[in-house]
Design a binder for these strands. Structure first.
Lengths: 258, 258
DNA sequence: CGCGACTTTGAGTCTCATCAAGTTCGGTGG
DNA sequence: CCACCGAACTTGATGAGACTCAAAGTCGCG
């Protein structure tokens, strides 16, 4: 049993070699899958926080509403991510979380995280690494929103999401799925949906990205990176300094091993 | 030996009751204090990351520079904080860190963190909680920079830093120290130093905050909170759901105990 | 076929950036 | 003790990028 059908096991395994025992512990987090449909919120700001969720299928996002009704989307989550980690140290939710599309989530209680800490040093370190990576994503978003123009911001985000999708699901091609509305993109990147539309037009004219419905084609990734001032280092987390990592095993190499 | 002179022990003890053993482990992180003067950078973006530092004295900040020369300050650190946590999962520094004023820092190697994980479940949870709180600070900053006006942003930050100082050093008074230049404030809040100056004038006229050199007087905290849309929940991390917390022990009560 | 969600386009406005000149104040050396 | 220097701050004029409001266009889906 290799649990490679489990999204979260694949995700964690990316950080370092997991023992069968570790994989079993992880897979156990996904014991209670729940179907959930697009637009549904898992929880809202202010509710009691006592569970985490693994995200098995579908995209989700976390958000905050302000007094004036404005919304800020804080993070976009892809399958394999853990939802609710940000509230580890809080009794109440600081942020709401909602589904971008239909998906499957698996709840597990906060307490379970402590059990995990006591059962496996490796998983503890990986969990910490995942939190650290999430913070890196957030920092980069802050830099974008604070210091980059609308064009740069959008270009930068498209690049980020392109790489993140490739990391968990490495199929090639210049075309990617992007199931966010322009309103959601605006709330994520700190601009209005109207300006998102205009900015896509500009990127389109500059031949940097073509959006069509919920798909984006990126003809020249290098050019897009330049436009957005993109430096991928913040996506390449790595625990090799602490723990032994999986040797890179392309599908073919694996065949030779056995 | 209660280690209460150690800033980091006080800081961690805030989260939950630490055993003497835990305190000893923590205090050991501060074995190698180093004096460091204002303006000095501990490290720069891109350098190899193999150490954390505890900040014993003085304020510090982390920052990123962009291609165009702009700087974004990501976080301000106060005594008791841990520097470099954000790079737990990375081999290289993603951000630079520099001292705002003269201070004392204590380096310890990354590997030490893993030892800590295996030595104490409580400290593991607290370390995770601290990372979680840092992310909460960052999220709130993102919301500010993205969705609040310059006035609101500055008011919000003044309130935040006021409370953070009170949490580790609970002396009363409407006056607080704020050893940041307006240029640094601008780089933190995503505006120009010129606009910081104008915004202080506005807050001044509105009788919300008076800045004088490196001190700020806040005559009416409630009014400032309203101006900045401030909700302090994101500062009140809490591990009681997992771990037993210190019962509140005002100095007098302590005397009765013994 | 037509409804609703999403997107595009246009015109006018506002917040904040930029550039530039001047002011304050603490520290330093004569 | 005073003059001066530089860092930090203030103030003014002008302009750009993004917002707001409004209306029209596109497309999937019932």
């Amino acid at each position: 049993m290799d649990y490679s059908d489990s999204c979260i096991v694949r995700h964690f395994d990316y950080y370092c070699a997991l023992s069968p025992k570790d994989k079993k512990i992880l897979a156990a987090l996904e014991e209670n899958p729940i179907k959930i449909s697009r637009g549904t919120s898992l929880w809202q700001e202010g509710e009691n926080a006592d569970e985490f969720y693994t995200l098995s299928q579908g995209w989700a996002y976390s958000y905050r509403y302000l007094e004036n009704g404005a919304r800020q989307i804080l993070e976009v989550y892809l399958p394999g991510d853990i939802l609710g980690l940000q509230e580890f140290a809080f009794t109440d939710r600081l942020e709401g979380v909602a589904m971008i599309e239909d998906g499957i989530i698996c709840p597990f209680p906060h307490q379970r995280m402590l059990e995990l800490f006591s059962e496996s040093l490796t998983l503890t370190a990986v969990m910490f690494a995942i939190a650290s990576r999430q913070q890196a994503l957030l920092s980069e978003r802050l830099v974008s929103v604070s210091r980059r123009s609308a064009r740069e911001r959008l270009a930068h985000f498209l690049h980020e999401i392109f790489l993140r999708q490739r990391q968990t699901d490495p199929k090639g091609g210049a075309k990617m799925r992007l199931p966010l509305t322009q309103e959601q993109l605006g709330d994520l990147l700190g601009m209005t949906s109207v300006h998102v539309s205009r900015t896509f037009s500009v990127l389109n004219e500059a031949k940097l990205a073509y959006r069509n419905r919920y798909h984006v084609t990126i003809p020249d990734l290098k050019a897009l990176a330049k436009e957005g001032g993109f430096d991928e280092r913040y996506l390449n987390s790595d625990l090799t300094c602490f723990l032994r990592k999986n040797p890179p095993t392309p599908p073919l190499a694996k065949a030779f091993d056995t």
